[in-house]
Design a binder for these strands. Structure first.
Lengths: 334, 334
DNA sequence: ACTGCACTTGAAAAGCTTTTCAAAAAAGGA
DNA sequence: TCCTTTTTTGAAAAGCTTTTCAAGTGCAGT
């Protein structure tokens, strides 16, 4: 049986109130007793019961994180950032992987509700009314990361997807490429999808390359699908010399496809990715990519949630973080 | 303010005991009241307070997971497995990433203790006396995954590292390779390290290739280090034609190094990895590797922990799961 | 109509901590 | 030494649920 505050009190020969005080306001108890209590705590390895505490404070000091796919390398860095922020702010973190299953997401919200998490960070997904209603029904504060909501006024942190895509495509154009394709997210409800298409389009128009606008194929988050989509793209437009991919994993899929067809990257085709996951620098060739500040995104969203939880609102509700282009080995001048 | 059982009781015009009963033993309350209560619950979106519940049950229905490095792809699959098992068994999962920092690990144990997790799964690390003492001091049941303890009698699930390494090296030998190197874990306290070296040695001896025994270089879990270690290996033994790597990430590091030196894989050198992380099938060339049942390892360890938590012991304390060799594109006959 | 029984229901206690309030002790001043 | 003020301490309540126990209701049998 775990020791309780009573056991500590008995061992130290004081009342439970005194024990509680040495833990929460040590300066109010005389040194002699304080030391006895501290010894007893040490001796019994006493740890206050967080259920009893939670009951009083009405706080669990736990944050929940909802991510669509834990096997996507993108989230590993984000989790690290969030966890570091949580340590700094005194929270524990409960990570739940929805596998992009709405049912599962909803049931995780229930779990969070029951566990009384103090707040939730909602990653990447689109905030459907169904989710929103449930969340506000449960009265759980939440923020969004790598996503945002136009319908509801929810704090969020993300990168400027349109500008980032524009930069990537502009880079390709400046390299001299004229036949440029794109691999986008086929998810109808993708948050990052549309703005990245817009960025692609804007760059194309700006440089009078509108004939590429239709060269977009879609894949659903995974390597294999990107491989397939590349096949479609290059079958339909065999003269394509550069591809902008909305995820590093897509870039890897594209490069694998090209490799299997014996076309050289970057020799014959240039490929640029998006995210700069850790693997981007390990792949062969190393990926030129748009880097998102992944760790910082996670860190910041936890901070933002903390702000929301403690003050009831956040100062900057729609925060943007800077992306940057990292030129490595998957692109070349034409 | 979140609604409590009192609010539900008031709305339904019954006592709180009755409300509690419709949730925990519905058959004991007459239908008319039960329906009223159910309506009230629905109406208020009432969710029982898990603090109060935990206080009574002395259970949190939460499991803790301690992993060394969330950015290592190996753990993503494991987490998926554990999380699926947790859903099945009615637990929540709290994942903590120690970044291989003992201090941090210890402080996470404190956090788990305070949060009263019902049990902990301890992944990959070596169980130092310091950890063990703390865990038993906290009276938290725990199991180990991809690891085990020789000193203490702790339930564990893992792969047979010695046999797996043996199989990998034997495969290389049967391919006709005579000059075989190895990239191992440099971590002195690695659990998987020594048996994999032994497996390497056993295969070598069995086929009279003892002259390779010294061709082992060490790296510390990351791509960059494996790249460095490859440099050492090939500088010292330039005639090496095959490398056995104890992690897929090491294999990628080796292949990258070789690529930078313009040596072809598998054309001139064959490389075999270990783990079969998702990326193994995405890399160029796709990795030949020893596959661990990563998802199952995670799933099983959660089941095992559940068994330990509920019954106080487990039937099979040192469980082994089957590995298998997956031949892809990074190896070739000599 | 009454007794006995089974079934329902509500009151109260327990689980552990924090905090308020009042009492006790100590310290300081005269 | 006595009184006032400050500091320190303990008792008790609150926070929310489950569960035990006793009381209440309704029904069947005689």
């Amino acid at each position: 049986m775990k020791p309780t505050i009573r056991d500590v009190a008995k061992m130290a020969g004081v009342s439970i109130s005194t024990v509680s005080r040495v833990m929460n306001a040590p300066e109010t108890v005389v040194e002699s007793k304080r030391l006895k209590v501290l010894d007893a705590i040490e001796e019994l390895k006493y740890q206050p019961n967080s259920f009893a505490r939670g009951l009083i404070y009405r706080k669990s000091f736990t944050l929940g994180l909802l991510i669509p796919d834990i096997e996507n390398m993108y989230y590993a860095g984000m989790i690290r950032g969030m966890q570091d922020a949580c340590i700094k702010l005194g929270y524990s973190l409960m990570i739940c992987n929805t596998d992009r299953d709405p049912e599962r997401l909803l049931s995780y919200i229930d779990a969070f509700h029951e566990k009384q998490v103090d707040g939730i960070v909602f990653a990447s997904d689109m905030l459907f009314p169904e989710y929103y209603d449930k969340l506000v029904g449960c009265r759980i504060p939440f923020v969004m990361v790598s996503s945002h909501s136009d319908e509801y006024d929810i704090p969020s942190v993300e990168v400027d997807d349109e500008a980032a895509a524009y930069d990537a495509v502009k880079f390709l154009i400046e390299l001299g490429h004229k036949q440029i394709g794109m691999l986008g997210f086929n998810d109808v409800n993708s948050i990052a999808g549309p703005p990245r298409i817009e960025g692609f389009a804007r760059a194309l128009k700006e440089f009078g390359l509108e004939h590429n606008l239709e060269k977009v194929k879609y894949a659903s988050h995974r390597f294999e699908h990107a491989y397939e989509a590349s096949h479609e793209l290059f079958s339909e437009y065999p003269d394509t010399t550069a591809v902008f991919c909305v995820a590093d994993e897509f870039a890897m899929g594209a490069i694998s496809y090209l490799k299997d067809r014996n076309v050289l990257v970057p020799g014959q085709v240039s490929v640029v990715g998006f995210d700069n996951v850790r693997m981007a620098g390990m792949f062969i060739p190393k990926l030129t990519t748009i880097a998102q500040p992944i760790y910082e995104l996670g860190y910041r969203s936890a901070e933002q949630l903390h702000e929301l939880v403690t003050t009831g609102s956040v100062k900057v509700t729609r925060e943007k973080m800077k992306h940057r282009l990292i030129v490595r080995e998957s692109t070349r001048e034409r």
